[in-house]
Design a protein around this nucleic acid. Structure first.
Lengths: 222, 222
DNA sequence: CGCCGGGTGGTACCGCGGTACTACGCGCCG
DNA sequence: CGGCGCGTAGTACCGCGGTACCACCCGGCG
């Protein structure tokens, strides 16, 4: 039996979900909340398997509530529901740590399948949104651990040279790298020169780009 | 009626899909292929709505076949199927342009729902894989159009300065930028200097990092 | 033993990158 | 009209980055 907390500011909407889910043998609505703050509280109290979260709500919205629930670290998974497939919502929800994002016009069996998946530790995205997610995914995400291993340029780097490349990717000058690695700047220059030669970069700027392309450097680091 | 091309090197597997799909009122198997090369050919001939593509095949594998089919630009969508949820496959398939990725142990209704979604221009990912996709997505994808707009540094750039920043992100030297923009190198230097000051970067290396962080520069461009 | 690769270090040189400051034409707006 | 933001352009200066070349130490290996 999967326990569910229904969060929506509209009472009628909550009622609809309750009727639907309680009529199913595998799901049970154990509580409701009408806003984000209440959702966070009741999640802590009831520890439901799944929180069915509406986005648009007065006060603390569904995104912020999701963030707090996820950060609290409980075992409850959040499945975000919205009427509007606005990109901003999807991005924000997924970054907040939601395990799923479905549209309210989903068919009951889709909703059930989503709840089942989320409860099982998996994640779901409405097909209508998956398209856009994938487009961005393909654009931004390097190549997993695919290209890096295949790329002979990266493989030809020694351990030390890879460290140097990562340091370059952090935007450090040769002097800063020397200081952090506790070696002389001459040594750093030697390494940098070899790195550039091996990866086929003209200067450290192109080395940074190379590092980002292969996922050696990542946003938010350094 | 949704037309489907079944691609799998195992004859028994193809037979299974054919029986399943032909028994459904809304889908019809219009052809089969036993390897990647044949899949590309028959897709061009038959122009199916959906190509059900196995990954592991002798010769041209499913990933490469997907890439070719997508690049050909027809209206056929590729739904990749595999027995093993290996990360490499998922990444590669999605980057190759697949509209979906499901596991072969999916229940028939899931498969049907997937085919329906893909045929309708949407995309699907098996819930078991979506979790990992989302984790990487949240890590790598900037913040949609969120953070960039919020960041006053980026907002303070003029149109021209943003162009300059993108050019820096491509790894171009001041001279190259001047040539491509058909202005003098002095002008470029002036712009670069202002960009660095506005975004708080010490040199163009940090500017590149800034550009990647905000999604202004992307892997694979330039 | 000698050789070799990798890490370390140094010297010398030059050019691109970055800064500081000035300047002019243009379009917009009070 | 005068001011201002923006794009353009120039000069002068200096330092970091990158290259070329050489050198030493150390560990592994034939």
């Amino acid at each position: 039996m999967t326990t569910v907390l229904v969060v929506d500011d509209q009472q009628l909407q909550r009622y609809g979900f309750r009727v639907l889910l309680d009529s199913m043998p595998e799901t049970e609505v154990v509580g409701e909340a009408a806003n984000g703050a209440e959702a966070v509280r009741r999640t802590a109290e009831l520890r439901p398997d799944v929180v069915l979260m509406d986005v648009r709500m007065p006060g603390v919205d569904g995104i912020e509530a999701t963030r707090r629930i996820v950060e609290a670290g409980g075992r409850s998974r959040v499945l975000v529901l919205t009427t509007f497939d606005v990109d901003e919502y999807v991005h924000a929800a997924l970054r907040a740590g939601a395990s799923g994002f479905l549209l309210k016009d989903a068919r009951p069996e889709e909703l059930l399948a989503g709840i089942r998946a989320v409860a099982g530790g998996d994640a779901v995205i409405a097909p209508a949104l998956t398209r856009r997610i994938l487009d961005e995914y393909a654009r931004y995400v390097p190549t997993g651990r695919n290209a890096p291993d295949e790329d002979p340029r990266l493989a030809s780097l020694t351990e030390r040279e890879r460290e140097i490349l990562v340091a370059i990717g952090k935007g450090w000058t040769n002097g800063e790298i020397a200081a952090r690695f506790v070696v002389s700047e001459s040594t750093v220059k030697t390494h940098v020169g070899r790195v550039l030669a091996k990866i086929g970069a003209r200067d450290r700027v192109q080395a940074v780009i190379f590092a980002y392309d292969r996922g050696l450097a990542r946003p938010g680091a350094g």
